[in-house]
Design a protein around this nucleic acid. Structure first.
Length: 567
RNA sequence: UCCCCGGUAGCUCAGCUGGUAGAGCAGGCGGCUGUUAACCGCCUUGUCGCAGGUUCGAGUCCUGCCCGGGGAGCCA
């Protein structure tokens, strides 16, 4: 076993994305005892997919040093270096350790978080802008890992300066190697003093993205390139962070991630128009004696659709696993053309057994606070960008949700508050009264002017809510809740579910639905039924709230809307 | 689906009550510069969304269609 401080320091400096090449062949052993070897004829590259952690170990069979790390449930990840050279040395753009050449694919995010300048760095990415001067060129390179790019400074001493650097333009992909140094100018902490710059992929003068502001409408027409912009890049990083925050929240609360179906045979979910899924020939489908399309010959022997909600299946999960959540794509074939609707979007739907409406309201409060806090913590730069360029209130209104306790108000009280406000002269465009749904203006009045904190409106009139919601004793309301927040209004909708078979069946009939279509849903109420509750939220709506992006098409990488499914 | 608004250079837009097209940016050339949406000078670029119509003449007026945006409904 080789140890020594030089080597330890080296290991510490290895970050996410490092890769290592060995040449010629080397045999080695992984930490778990398996044998592996590099090719004897070609240089082998091993990419490190996560930072070397405390789990990293050294082993030294023969004169080869192996840093290995096993990630749980993933393939082994390892670094090689030979043992006879204790100090990594920079040579011509690569780190050489013994007979092993090493090149970094450290992300810019990671580079900018180094404690101090100095040391080799390799940046791989796409040029945002290029500024040529006499005897010096500045390349703004972005690799998407964070808001900031890395400024690469090239000069006549840089290999490839005349042939490569001078020809670079916005959009080119490059690899630049050199030393990470403190920047003498304002605008960035570090910069890369380039020893050599390599053009990987050229971008012509017709590259659509320019170093100026583009309209979001235009960017939607080039959705294959828009992730390279500041705004969409930040959106995608926030989406990623929010996704992880959601999973982490539910895992912490002991909810199981349940995979509900994308294709459903039930057309009776009642949450909107559905997309038909069929393998029948569109132009000439088989027909029955009556001349109707013969669904019995279709793939599923019956009509099938894309799901509009995982809730009903979520209830199946909750009534076995106690607590589950879904987080997956959802489809609505509504012809709605607004900044808040997509034909394909992602929905989060927790469902919990032995939960009543109070439990659910408390869960939604913990949920929003946790997700927003995580995103604020992990996407500081991105959020600063949104606050500065997109929506001044972006951070502030998230903090309001995080810091203020949610207030619970029954629907009838909310109506009374609104009526009183109206009588005092508050002007509402839409009418207020018991039995009427709350419009966006009403929701915003309650949360912004009345309390200034998030509000959970509970116990809604049964006639404006869905059949599966728990009928309250007053026979007039159901145990439904809407969570309202400043800026956008409703952000979460949920309910305690009707778990009494007779009440549920009566409601299904009363709403003109066919109980046979819900046979398994009703069965759940016949076999070990328990009170349970759940809510749903549109993931993109949450991202809109977080980022302040006005149009939902700009918070999803590939928006699907009526008449639009390019990319 | 309904109601409004829009579609002019690669991008962002201007073009008054009809007289046959302009700016900034991008691109090219030159200059200057440790620059950072760099700057300065010169230069290039258009089936004015598509199809009809009115008119001596249409980017401009009328009709239809297509596309985009905003609002409404529906909802997440």
């Amino acid at each position: 076993m080789t140890s020594g401080s030089a080597r330890s320091d080296f290991v510490k400096s290895v970050r996410t994305g490092f890769s290592v090449a060995s040449s010629p062949s080397m045999g080695f052993r992984l930490e778990d005892g398996r044998r592996a070897s590099t090719s004897s004829t070609t240089t082998s590259l091993f990419r490190i997919a996560s930072p070397i952690s405390r789990r990293a170990r050294f082993m030294c069979p023969g004169n080869q040093l192996i840093f290995s790390m096993i990630r749980p449930a993933r393939r082994a990840i390892f670094l090689l270096a030979s043992a006879h050279d204790s100090e990594p040395r920079p040579t011509g753009g690569t780190l050489l350790i013994g007979g092993v050449t090493m090149s970094s694919s450290e992300s810019i995010r990671s580079m900018l978080r180094r404690e101090s300048a100095g040391g080799e760095a390799v940046v791989r990415g796409w040029l945002r802008t290029v500024r040529h001067g006499k005897g010096v060129s500045f390349l703004d390179v972005s690799d998407g890992s964070c808001m900031d790019g890395l400024q690469v400074v090239a000069s006549p001493e840089t290999a490839g300066y005349e042939e490569v650097v001078k020809q670079l333009s916005t959009g080119c992909s490059v690899v630049a190697r050199g030393e990470l140094v403190d920047s003498p100018a304002k605008g960035q902490r570090f910069e890369l003093k380039a020893r050599d710059v390599e053009l990987v992929g050229d971008a012509g003068e017709d590259y659509p993205l320019q170093k100026k502001r583009h309209s979001f409408e235009f960017l939607r027409t080039i959705a294959h390139l828009r992730p390279r912009t500041n705004t969409i890049g930040a959106v995608l990083r926030v989406r990623n962070a929010a996704s992880m925050a959601i999973h982490e929240f539910f895992q912490r609360e002991e909810f199981f991630y349940l995979h509900t179906p994308i294709i459903t045979a039930s057309d009776a979910e009642g949450a909107g128009e559905m997309f038909r899924v069929t393998t029948l020939p569109v132009g000439d489908p088989p027909r029955n004696k009556e001349g109707q399309v013969d669904d019995a010959q279709d793939f599923f022997s019956r009509p099938a659709y894309l799901t509009v909600s995982g809730q009903l299946e979520g209830e199946i999960g909750a009534l076995a696993m106690s607590r589950v959540y879904t987080f997956g794509p959802t489809f609505r074939a509504e012809n709605s053309n607004t900044a808040r609707h997509l034909a394909e979007f992602w929905m989060v739907e927790p469902e919990a057994a032995f939960y009543d409406l109070d439990d659910l309201a408390a869960l939604s409060e913990r949920f929003l606070k946790s997700v927003f806090k995580d995103v604020l913590d992990r996407c500081e730069d991105d959020m600063a960008f949104f606050e500065k360029r997109i929506e001044k209130q972006a951070i502030e209104r998230m903090k309001t949700v995080i810091e203020r306790p949610f207030e619970r108000i029954p629907y009838h009280e909310a109506i009374a508050i609104l009526e009183k406000a109206r009588d005092r002269g508050e002007s509402f465009e839409f009418p207020v009264g018991f039995g009427l749904d709350l419009q966006s203006e009403h929701e915003r009045y309650l949360t912004e002017k009345h309390t200034g904190c998030p509000i959970v409106v509970t116990d809604w009139p049964k006639d404006i809510k869905a059949f599966y919601m728990y009928r309250n004793d007053d026979e007039e309301t159901v145990a439904a809740m809407d969570v309202l927040v400043g800026g956008v209004g409703e952000i979460i909708g949920g309910s305690q579910r009707e778990h009494r078979a007779d009440v549920l069946e009566a409601t299904i009939r009363a709403q003109g639905l066919e109980p046979d279509d819900y046979w398994w849903y009703l069965d759940l109420r016949r076999f070990g039924s328990v009170p349970h509750a759940g809510f749903g939220l549109g993931f993109e709506r949450i991202i809109q709230f977080i980022t302040g992006m006005a149009n939902i098409r700009d918070v999803i990488p590939f928006p699907r809307t009526p008449g639009s499914a390019e990319f």
